[in-house]
């Protein structure tokens, strides 16, 4: 048994989802290699080499890989696939983009968003926004699996695997071209892996209010900022703040929902948090059904009191 983990990274750094996907790979058993496909990605590869339990790190570099373009990543992974029984990919936005393309090129189904490895061919995954869990058994000889990072504890550092350079697959001429990227640089922790998340909902009423109320509370707690779909749709918060079925799935130690009613699509993205706090003036809001601690009240008074109580 040999498993290839495709790393989540930003070239300069390794994403935490990689160490969590290695943890899932260990449940499958066998040798684990990590592919870092990027450009100028030596720092990410070096970080991957330090993860415990890794046999070797493969580093493939090209311009197209530098932008994680699906066509380029797919062709490179497929060129290496012969040596592996399973390919594990973190279910980040980059991984979700290229993983099904890899699966189809290998003529196998993807096993999506795995939260538990029952055995090397049997897995548990959420369906219907996490309202049901499906246990599936794959008879495909080669398995392509995306791993929900929040469901696995990251493996520790402590390894010293060799880094081998491998060839990036040549461009086939029918790929998407990279035009540009607008990525917001933030000093806050990344939403998907944060220990504490403060999320705001429709009750904020405006982008200014979201900014004024949610962000200082998050900064006081060293937390990441999230939002409900309603708040994002209304333009109060940027798209990539969205927590839910179709946004980010988070499982922090502490999730504070401010002015969020708790639609099932939102609960799908945060109900595995260790402790949930809800602040809402509607005592019947569904968010209270999953909250460990609830305060019924207007966030306009509760949040300043909370800021004061935190000191």
């Amino acid at each position: 048994m040999a498993v290839l983990v495709v790393a989540d990274h930003t070239n300069a750094a390794l994403g935490e989802a990689t160490a969590k996907t290695v943890a899932a790979a260990q449940k499958l058993g066998g040798d684990i290699d990590i592919l870092v496909a990027g450009q100028g990605a030596r720092p990410a590869a070096d970080a991957a080499a330090k993860l415990a339990g890794v046999r070797k790190v493969l580093l493939a570099e090209s311009d197209a890989l530098g932008h994680q373009l699906a066509e380029a990543v797919t062709d490179t992974v497929v060129s290496l696939a012969g040596g592996y029984d399973a390919i594990l990919i973190p279910a980040t936005s980059a991984g979700k983009n290229y993983s099904p393309r890899i699966a189809a090129k290998l003529d196998v189904n993807q096993i999506t968003d795995v939260i538990e490895v029952v055995s090397p061919d049997t897995f548990v995954r959420p369906i219907y926004a996490g309202n049901a869990l499906e246990t599936v058994q794959s008879s495909d000889a080669k398995k392509v699996i995306t791993v929900r990072p929040t469901a696995f504890k990251p493996v520790a550092d402590g390894g010293s695997a060799p880094v081998e350079t491998v060839a990036a697959a040549p461009a086939a001429g029918r790929e998407a071209g990279f035009v540009g990227e607008e990525v917001v640089k933030s000093d806050r922790p990344e939403l998907a892996g944060a220990k504490i998340v403060v999320s705001g909902g429709r009750a904020m009423g405006s982008a200014e209010e979201f900014h004024r109320v949610i962000e200082p509370l998050a900064d006081k707690l060293g937390a990441a900022v999230g939002a409900s779909r309603a708040a994002v749709d209304a333009g109060y918060a940027p798209n990539d703040y969205q927590v839910g079925q179709t946004g980010k799935v988070v499982a922090p130690d502490l999730y504070i929902a401010v002015g969020i009613s708790g639609a099932i699509q939102h609960l799908a993205g945060m109900k595995d948090s260790k402790v949930i706090v809800a602040i809402n003036k509607d005592a019947d809001a569904p968010i209270f059904q999953v909250a460990d601690y609830g305060i019924v009240g207007d966030y306009k008074t509760v949040v300043p009191e909370l800021m004061a109580a935190l000191g």
Binding site: I127, L133, E134, T135, D140, Y293, I295, E305
Partner: peptide, 25 residues
């Protein structure tokens, strides 16, 4: 080629407690 062995309910979270104010929280 993907056989569904079973479909189950996710573990339920139960509602916790309501607290009176931020200091108590």
């Amino acid at each position: 080629k993907l056989k569904v062995l079973k479909v189950t309910e996710p573990p339920k979270r139960s509602a916790g407690v309501k607290v009176e104010n931020a200091a108590e929280l």
